[in-house]
Design a protein around this nucleic acid. Structure first.
Lengths: 203, 203
DNA sequence: TGTACATCAGTGAACGCGCGTTCACTGATGTAC
DNA sequence: TGTACATCAGTGAACGCGCGTTCACTGATGTAC
């Protein structure tokens, strides 16, 4: 029977955790990160406002899970871009483009990823997901297997940090409307300027 | 009599507008941008919750005024740094250091400056203050008098945008704890890494 | 195969909260004559 | 110099809001025998 896959409304949802994450994603995509509300998320998932607590403990817990998931997909995007390029500079540029593309396409999620007032940055899952993303960037900008760790102040980190800063800054400026606030302005700026901007980095 | 400068509590405040801006600044410095509240601001200024409306219209109005003022001081800091250096590269690096220093020292204000969900980015005063800051950066990275405008997609903008992106990204990553979340970690990272990072920029 | 029971995943009503804004008001100031 | 009056800059109580979380509960599921 396809019944239990479709319309039958049962007391137990079955995949509520995933459904809540999707609903939350939709809420922030529509209303912005600041417009998030746990009750609205529950409403969209068709569930009582108390239900999310069962899976995430609190609103912060849900957002932390969503941010972790976002970081994972972000890492995937960087990895995929990396695999398409060959030279060191080529890898770095491909990743830089993917970085900015992700930020523009998944705007709200990208902002959430860095919103420490709303998530728990000490969550192990979050930590692991965000650290991984940096290591992918790092390995491209220093060429081959990553060695140092994100938190270190080793001067050997400078190239990676410079690369990271450049693309991160460009993405945020674009999101914040520095290149115009009209519809599509950020995307146009990225297309027109990003390649030239990336060329200003010496590795 | 010094009375009217000190303790005498009069019905009319006299400089309430300024007092509210200062109170708001203190609130976000203590509680973070997300912790802002108009009522709390009024409380600190020793005034009823309805008073701010008289000077700023709404909470958003107050925050927009605060962000504009922040951008003005930010521009001043960039300008001062610029005046200390001589070569083009020197000016750019001095401004870059000032940029990051401002972000770290005036953390909450710096974040507010870019928080479009809370302010009105179309406010003329805000526009002018933010545009000015960019033009100072721009004039250093292209050498001498600024020519193009922030919104343009002219490829000649690439050096300025690259410089801007680099320092903006570094600042945000530092604030967001990418270099560690312990007390003072961001400052230490800036001291240890920023000069080397700035050297990766070709002008 | 059937039954008892523990555990799990939801409900829905209620709580208390602090918020931004509104409203009719009043005390102080400044200006015209 | 004194008075009338408009304007300005505050008050403080009230409104309605949506929020996150709590609580005692119940329906469904899975497991042991």
């Amino acid at each position: 029977m396809a019944d239990d896959l479709n319309s039958v409304k049962t007391y137990h949802h079955g995949r509520l955790r995933q459904a809540l994450l999707e609903a939350a994603e939709a809420v922030i995509a529509e209303r912005g990160v600041d417009g998030f509300s746990l009750r609205e998320t529950a409403r969209r998932a068709g569930v009582s406002p108390a239900a999310p607590a069962h899976h995430f403990g609190s609103a912060r817990g849900l957002l932390t899970a969503l941010a972790s998931e976002a970081f994972r997909r972000f890492g995937d995007a960087l990895e995929a871009a990396d695999a398409m390029a060959e030279s060191r500079a080529g890898r770095m540029r491909a990743q830089g483009a993917a970085y900015v593309l992700f930020a523009l396409q998944e705007r709200a999620k990208f902002e959430l990823m860095w919103r420490y007032a709303l998530i728990d940055p000490d969550d192990p899952d979050y930590q692991q997901a965000s650290r991984r993303a940096f290591l992918i960037l790092d390995s491209a900008s220093r060429g081959e297997g990553a060695s140092a760790s994100p938190g270190s102040l080793d001067p050997a980190m400078a190239p990676s940090i410079a690369c990271w800063s450049l693309v991160h800054g460009f993405a945020r400026l674009a999101l914040d409307g520095a290149f115009g606030t009209e519809e599509g302005a950020a995307e146009r700026a990225a297309r027109a300027l990003l390649p030239a901007v990336l060329r200003h980095l010496t590795l």
